[in-house]
Design a protein around this nucleic acid. Sequence first.
DNA 1: TATAAAACCGAGTGCGTAGGTAGGAATTAA
DNA 2: TTAATTCCTACCTACGCACTCGGTTTTATA
Lengths: 149, 149
Amino acid sequence: MRLSTKGRYGLKAMLDLAVNGQNGHIALNSIAERQNISEHYLEQLIAVLRKAGLVESMRGAQGGYILARSPKDITVGDILRTLEGSLAPVDCVVENKEHECSQADYCVTKPIWLKVRDSINKVVDSITLQDLVDDYKEVYAQATDMYYI
Amino acid sequence: MRLSTKGRYGLKAMLDLAVNGQNGHIALNSIAERQNISEHYLEQLIAVLRKAGLVESMRGAQGGYILARSPKDITVGDILRTLEGSLAPVDCVVENKEHECSQADYCVTKPIWLKVRDSINKVVDSITLQDLVDDYKEVYAQATDMYYI
DNA sequence: TATAAAACCGAGTGCGTAGGTAGGAATTAA
DNA sequence: TTAATTCCTACCTACGCACTCGGTTTTATA
């Protein structure tokens, strides 16, 4: 039941953008360096975030990435589901695919998986990037050049 | 974030034992047949459940398995965590290992993972095998020879 | 006491996915 | 024109899941 690095790295990158991208685009290599993530690998992840409309890019010199929306309008759930797919614990309760199991009406375990899925979504959808930015600023009120996320 | 078949098969097997094991031991092959699980594979899973003290075995002819405790004293969480390990979404919030990350005090994402972990555990710990047996009996009030779990 | 039914055990296998690398093409500010 | 940067496709490797295989040991019963 672990999240892969996709979700974790992606969340780190998005938080990095929220903290550092106030005035303009941020180059991928600077994010990768600060967050200690392979640049080429992060490239693949941010491509997914871009296609999902969570970040926007600018090519060429001085290009980079920027959040597509305000941090308060991007939830942790948006980011994780974009990179990990559904957070459902079993396939039979993946969103919009619940009907696909022929035994759904008789299955006594399905309600368990639904509850687990919904409780996970509830947590991650209740936290916005802005919440994390606020936490970050509080923790690093003094040491402004630290980037542990 | 999917559960593996270990957890799902294990839960099915335990529910099968709760439903069918009222009067004595149940042979593994009958569980495997009813639940449509590879017998040899289920053997490996039930060995884990036995070592964890959730089921007891009797060897030899007419032997088999039986729940070690009353179904009302076995939760879905007990079964899933035994077979899957911690249900934590990331390693840094695996139970009793939270301290191992040197950045734990500064990490702004850790509280997210803690909330996710706790919400998952809360759901699965609130449901007992007896609850599932009751659901099962309700669904199959008429068709008593069906075994979809 | 022999037999068959069952649990117990350890090793091996195929496959998919995670987590990257490698190398280059296209774009654009300076 | 150059250098910085995104974008794209292909490839690679290790690992764990979901089994299979071939036995050994135990025990009720005929």
